[in-house]
Amino acid sequence: MIILGLILLLLGFALGIGILWTIGIVLIIIGAVLWVLGSTDRAVAGRRHYW
Rank of each mutant, 00 (worst) to 15 (best):
M1P: 00
M1V: 04
M1E: 01
I2N: 08
I2P: 06
I2T: 02
I3V: 14
L4A: 15
L4H: 04
G5V: 02
L6Y: 04
L6S: 09
L6Q: 04
L6I: 15
I7C: 13
I7L: 15
I7A: 13
L8M: 12
L9F: 15
L10C: 11
L10H: 03
L11R: 02
L11G: 01
F13H: 07
F13W: 13
A14P: 00
A14S: 12
A14L: 15
L15G: 07
L15Y: 13
G16E: 01
I17G: 02
I17L: 14
G18R: 05
G18V: 13
G18S: 11
I19V: 14
I19D: 01
L20Q: 02
W21Q: 03
W21H: 08
W21S: 01
W21M: 06
W21A: 01
T22H: 07
I23H: 01
I23N: 01
G24E: 08
I25W: 09
I25M: 12
V26N: 01
V26I: 15
L27W: 09
L27V: 00
L27F: 15
I28T: 00
I29H: 06
I30R: 01
I30S: 07
G31Y: 10
G31R: 07
G31N: 05
A32Q: 07
A32K: 06
V33W: 07
V33F: 11
L34Y: 09
W35S: 10
W35P: 01
V36P: 03
L37I: 12
L37D: 11
G38C: 03
G38R: 04
G38M: 01
S39T: 09
S39K: 11
T40Q: 11
T40V: 14
T40M: 14
D41C: 02
D41P: 00
D41Q: 09
R42P: 00
A43R: 08
A43S: 12
V44L: 13
V44G: 07
A45F: 15
A45D: 08
A45C: 08
A45V: 10
G46M: 01
R48K: 13
R48Y: 12
R48I: 11
H49R: 11
Y50S: 03
Y50P: 02
Y50I: 03
Y50Q: 06
W51R: 10
W51K: 05
W51E: 10
